Amino acid sequence: MGARFRPGDRVRVVAARPAISVGRAHIRTPHYVRGQDGMVAEVMGPFRNPEGLATGGDGLPMQVLYRVRFPQAQLWQGYEGPAKDTLEVEIYEHWLEPIHAA
């Protein structure tokens, strides 16, 4: 299974639950990053989908997991820390969409 994104790619976290998402009670992607733009920091490889595993499924098809970096000031209104502060979140591929350069 190949990764759709590479380190340095700009991505947007899907704001609504993706169609491929499974299960009713377990969503692994935090609300505070949904709809936000970030940058792929690392491709971690394919893993079973925890949204399916948590609800008794087999977690298939496997999904590529990424570490995505976000500027803290973008995530937290009124953030007063240094402008260079970032937060990295591990997010599965079905929650990400590409941001195309204008």
Rank of each mutant, 00 (worst) to 15 (best):
A15R: 11
V40N: 02
P30H: 07
F47G: 04
P61V: 13
M44R: 13
A15H: 06
R28P: 01
H31C: 01
R12W: 00
A54Q: 00
N49H: 11
T55F: 10
P50A: 04
V14W: 00
M44K: 10
A15W: 04
E51Q: 15
R17Q: 03
R12F: 00
H31A: 11
T29F: 08
L60T: 07
M39D: 14
P46D: 14
A41N: 14
G23N: 06
H31F: 04
V14I: 04
R34I: 14
G56S: 09
M44C: 07
V14L: 10
G45L: 01
G35W: 01
H26N: 14
Y32V: 10
G38T: 07
H31G: 06
P50R: 02
Q36E: 02
G56Y: 11
H26K: 13
V43L: 06
A25W: 15
V33S: 09
Y32N: 09
A25K: 15
P61K: 11
V40A: 05
A54S: 00
V22P: 06
D37R: 12
Q36T: 01
L60P: 05
G57K: 13
I27V: 11
T29E: 11
E42L: 11
P30W: 08
A54Y: 07
P30E: 07
V43Q: 08
S21E: 13
L60G: 04
A54L: 05
V40F: 03
A19Y: 03
G35C: 11
H26D: 08
G52H: 06
D37L: 08
G59Y: 02
A15V: 06
D37E: 15
N49M: 06
G57W: 14
V13F: 01
I27L: 11
P18E: 03
T29R: 12
R48H: 05
R48N: 04
L53W: 01
A15N: 01
G45Y: 03
M44S: 06
A15Q: 07
A41R: 14
R28N: 09
R28A: 10
V14N: 03
G52I: 09
A16I: 05
E51T: 12
E42R: 13
R24V: 08
V13N: 01
I27D: 12
P46F: 02
L60K: 09
A54N: 00
A16G: 10
A16K: 12
A41C: 09
G57Q: 12
P61M: 13
E42N: 09
R17N: 02
S21L: 12
M44Y: 04
G45P: 01
H31K: 05
D58K: 02
A54K: 00
V13A: 00
R34N: 13
M44D: 04
P61D: 11
R17W: 01
R17G: 01
R24L: 15
G57I: 14
M44N: 05
P50M: 01
G59S: 06
R24S: 13
V14C: 03
N49D: 15
E42G: 04
R17I: 10
G38M: 09
P30M: 07
T55L: 13
A54R: 02
V22F: 05
R17F: 04
P30R: 10
G56A: 10
A16W: 08
A15T: 03
R17K: 11
A54E: 00
M39H: 09
V40K: 00
P30A: 10
V40S: 02
V14Y: 00
G56L: 09
A25G: 14
A19E: 14
R34E: 13
